[in-house]
Design a protein around this nucleic acid. Structure first.
Lengths: 221, 221, 221, 221
DNA sequence: GATGAATGAGCTTTCATTCAT
DNA sequence: CATGAATGAAAGCTCATTCAT
């Protein structure tokens, strides 16, 4: 895949101008593409397969999305915008941060929020992860974007809780990395590798996960 | 990719018949393929690229490996044989299990051992993970193999330590799943997503990781 | 060549679904393929040669016929349907059988009819014969079809004329075989080996041929 | 197939210089090639298949025969020399022509002789016919050779018997063509299309065949 | 806007042939 | 002599993309 633009962020905002409502055919195409990309991966899915699955002519795909690349981006970009940048914002909006007296409460809110989000967009999440891993280019282009949006928001949060004496005495970046490694790893394991319905008691699952991380990160006395 | 055989395990043992020493060119081909598959993924790498990278004619690849599929398997199968089946065996051989009085010690030995193994074959690990995620077929064929080899060995171990009162009072399968999710997730995050040299103090890293998991899994008093 | 189906007869009827009108390019492709297959044989003709001859892109061939195999079948199947099953039917339709008082008259009608048919499709006939000889698989798949359609129609005819005392006292199968051997042999010699225009007086030719066969087969007194 | 020489006849005599006895490996190669060419046709048989069947290395084939073409010729040329040029000679040698008072006796001797010859070299005969039909070039190069050798010998014979009043009053060329068409057609039908062992009583078969032809060709009173 | 025929670049694979050992 | 690794040209085929209708 050769991404059509060098400036990923600009592309995202340009893409936003798609204020026009998608036609019924467009909807069908997107649905078909999501299904097949998630199943077989972008590179293993041909546009003709998508067209057949969507019940449209192959030309129709290109009329709307110009290239296969942009079809992928049309799926991923809205998802990325809704997920990464707001990774904390979403939390912040739904929770009154001031009332979060503990890092544990913050973490629980964050994880619950993200799990729900991924569950609501499971297939697109799968596509994104697969392509990040498979496609060095996409990964590279996403990296600064993620760093800017996630790190910049979470790091201060960590600093604050460190000051409050809630977290282990490690550099904030290290804590960040540990947190990220485990959370991200958890999401991939759970949503890309394990069977779909393995977790039954979601609340208990989050409880364990938070406990897990907290015990690893909380200040040792 | 259409895997050339239905019986993955048989294929593995047949593949062992590599009694003939590989040519110099064969070595070059394998090296080039590993490099490119790890970088761009199997589906995004053409055999002509591999040939060019290896400095051989494209025909030479097919003289030795018959298909692109089998080239991939030639890389993955030896790795799988060395990694999955022995995931605990390796640990058992190097450590005197009887002396492992605690689950923590066992976990530390296991993780250290596997990290070293992956570090020694980082690129092949990347290829394997990428293809497992990207290629539903490979995943499906690997699943029973993994279940048989990993679960059957680790589960008894967990039972034992549960009986010794070291582990949280959850079903062994749940503990297993939690352990797997986090370890696997950790490996993927660390070796496929984060930059190569982010971990400097490996011993401390394992310490944190084990601590992390132990705190989450140990018996709560 | 690996024929795409096991059931030749089914394939034939499926193929009939050619309800869509062929494109102009499709027509060109078929014409070019017929010309080149007849000239050089299927195996010695490359799809790129056909494309060049037809004045289309190579991809166009595969868009319409999926494989080189099916291109060949697209040419042969309609011909087979029109030729073999009706080998006698065509005769029966055009001639009032009841009025055929003699085997000689029947034979003459049959031969005249088939010669005209082959002359009208000389190139396809050549392709078919060549492939039957060259391609064991095609021959095998065609065999039961031919037996069913030809033998079952001609044998009763022979029996009838034997009863009328017109034919030599040999088993009907033997007469059938002799007839077949000579007719088929004649067609191959004439249309595949001898120059195109060697026969000038067609009527005389048939006369000689029928005479030839009749003298060999008629009842000896 | 691109025949390696323009002058077929010269090639034949050059080839004769192979007075050296073939090695055991050469024998194996020739046998394997004959078997596979007869079965699948020249174009559908790869040199590596031949090598495997013969139990030699692929290089060995090329060491002895330089090209795949020449391997084919090594098989066909001796056969052609023994068959076509002597088509009558063989007859002449074995039979005392002067004693042949009738065309029928000549024909019977000729046919019996040729049937035995083909039966002794059935596979090579098949290869030759297949390639003559499949390969326009070979056919073209063989044509003058055949004309020169066959026509020049049989035509005078026909003239002679015509003068003796044994044959129908048609131009000798026409009689020749009819004879050729039927004989050649008969051989192809019998040895390439019908099953191997369909003829049980060979003597009766020849009897019928000769009768067949004679009745067609003999002088009508 | 929607279609699907047409394209051509590029893919995997085959194969006759060469040549160092 | 025999081998088989290596070659590269050409084969059949796929696929994203274009464009006339």
């Amino acid at each position: 895949m050769s991404l059509p633009t060098k400036n990923f962020l600009k592309e995202i905002s340009l893409q936003t101008d798609h204020s026009k409502k998608p036609t019924e055919k467009q909807q069908k195409i997107i649905e078909a593409a999501i299904k097949m990309f998630a199943e077989k991966g972008y590179a293993n899915t041909s546009t003709s397969e998508i067209a057949k699955e969507a019940g449209v002519a192959e030309g129709t795909i290109f009329r709307h999305y110009r290239t296969k690349d942009r079809l992928l981006l049309s799926i991923l970009l809205p998802f990325i915008k809704k997920s990464f940048p707001s990774i904390a914002e979403g939390v912040f909006k739904e929770i009154n941060l001031d009332q979060l007296t503990s890092f544990e409460a913050f973490l629980k809110a964050l994880i619950t929020n993200r799990i729900e989000f991924i569950k609501a967009h499971k297939e697109i999440f799968r596509i994104l992860i697969k392509e990040i891993l498979y496609n060095e280019k996409l990964k590279k282009e996403l990296e600064p974007f993620v760093i800017k949006n996630i790190l910049s928001r979470i790091l201060p949060m960590i600093e604050r809780f460190k000051e409050q004496g809630e977290l282990v005495d490690l550099p904030a970046e290290t804590i960040m990395r540990i947190l990220f490694t485990h959370l991200f790893g958890y999401f991939i394991s759970r949503f890309l590798i394990l069977p779909d319905d393995i977790v039954q008691d979601e609340e208990a699952e989050v409880e364990i996960l938070v406990n897990f991380i907290m015990e690893g990160l909380k200040k040792r006395s």
